[in-house]
Design a protein around this nucleic acid. Structure first.
Lengths: 141, 141
DNA sequence: TTAAAAATTTAGACTATGTCTAATGTTAGA
DNA sequence: TCTAACATTAGACATAGTCTAAATTTTTAA
């Protein structure tokens, strides 16, 4: 993949591009499966076992803070992560909890009145239901 | 509040309206602060200490399954709950993690094409930013 | 080049949140 | 009133994630 681009994305983030951080970013950019921290830790260490559990968790937090990675909380399950590439919405499966990307489209903002003194940063659309794997096959049910 | 209405809401849910479950429902209907399970447990037992921790957690899960309560996952924080009264959207504070209700309005559904074989159940809009308490006071910054 | 400072990694202890088990209690309905 | 199904409980357990303190690596500045 584009190693240079990954390294460049760290510029101005306040974080160094260490081998451990690079591995996390590269993995997330190559896989849009929204892995959990545990899955990322395992995957990264399968290739080159030089990132500890603590480092993986710390780095994920740093990357989220730097705005390079997004964390997705799922009810009753471990958090999932994705590289903030193209804008997209999320579909979360009621049954298996998997997170999938859905084509992005503009979302109407709430009325200024109802926001009050709150400072709005982003509007996120989350779709729920059954993913392709979990949806019943035919018209049965 | 409307004790009868709370009891009636259990009809057809497959769950009995026990004192412990009633207490959870009543608390959630009187407070729209989106409390965590731990907060609900404490609050309910302050009034009448007859619900154990396990029961509170079990009942919250049951009530969510019955569709009477909604669970809101927040990144890096404990899950929060609210009674599914009027439809509304959620505002989640980046800084303190508090969840607030925002007036409901219709959300455009994604294109059928991009949904594929997925079965869509609901579209949820989540706003992020700083709540009134956490937003900077004046125009400073 | 090198010494000191800053940032990063690490193992493993620790914390928070939530689930499970097995025993006990309660309720609805025959 | 008896019984089967349902519900509650204490406390052990599981999972996900954080923290600490020491070691390592990188950067800065002389």
């Amino acid at each position: 993949m584009d190693a240079k681009a990954i390294k460049r994305s760290f510029d101005g983030s306040g974080f160094r591009c260490t081998p451990q951080r690079y591995a996390v970013m590269a993995f997330l950019m190559e896989h849009n499966s929204h892995p959990t921290a545990a899955e990322i830790f395992k995957a990264v260490n399968r290739v080159d076992p030089h990132s500890s559990r603590a480092t993986t968790y710390n780095n994920l937090r740093d990357l989220v803070q730097a705005g390079l990675v997004r964390e997705v909380a799922v009810e009753g399950r471990a958090a999932r992560f994705d590289a903030k590439g193209m804008r997209h919405h999320h579909f979360i499966c009621d049954r298996c909890g998997n997170v999938e990307d859905l084509e992005w489209y503009d979302v109407p903002r709430p009325a200024t009145r109802s926001l009050g003194k709150r400072m709005l940063r982003e509007c996120e659309l989350i779709f729920r239901g059954l993913c392709t794997k979990c949806a019943p096959r035919r018209t049965s049910r």
